[in-house]
Amino acid sequence: MGKTFKKPEALSDAHTHYCPGCTHGVIHRLVAETIDELGIRGRTVGIAPVGCAVLAYNYFNCDFQEAAHGRAPAMATGIKRVRPDLMVFTYQGDGDLASIGMGEIIHAANRGEKFTTIFVNNAIYGMTGGQMAPTTMPDQRTSTSPFGRKVEEVGMPIKMAELLAALQTPAYISRQTVIKPKYITKAKKAIKQAFTYQLENKCFSLVEVVSTCPTNWGMTPVQAVEWTEKTLLAYYQPGDYKVPA
């Protein structure tokens, strides 16, 4: 009997360092499947963030360039502007993209840079030890909001997909999640769509992926999935927020 299911070519054989119940692995796989299916592995460049995915270059079989914290869109801009034939994607977390890198992502999106961003939003800083992120939910406990995020002090969590969709420059902006198979299928479709728009040189594209962080949330993986579905998805609703004409 032949193989019916195999690892994408665009994924390496390395074991990931991600925690049990973390969804980075699933998202890596969806990106890798997309790269395989579009046949673009030889000309794809990933830009790694600072954060849990800083080691992403170990896991993808394509060129990878790390960027300073939050600056992946700038690095991607430089590469894509001089090599428009390449397929360039940034892979960024919520601290990297929505906090320190807020300026870079908004301006890259507004310039209509023809690269793709995979934005992994798990409502917390992972690698640095579970600090409050711009996307942390009201009353959510983190190491820097031990009594819960106080909205009156730090405002509401930022909805990046909606914020970027408000820009007038054409773009593809989608929000998905990967906590259950039914969501994974849709997330895959959105990621492939995002890369396809880049392939067609059409527009900037970003897929926000609502993700889990059981370690820093202080939950089991199962609890994390339940909390994501009940709390995060109620606020960060999945769907396409902007589609180019």
């Binding site: 360039q65 600056r71 700038a74 690095m75 430089g78 001089v82 870079e104």
Partner: peptide, 9 residues
């Protein structure tokens, strides 16, 4: 940052 990207290319 753009410069670093272009240089790496």
């Amino acid at each position: 940052g753009y410069c670093l990207g272009a240089s790496m290319a």
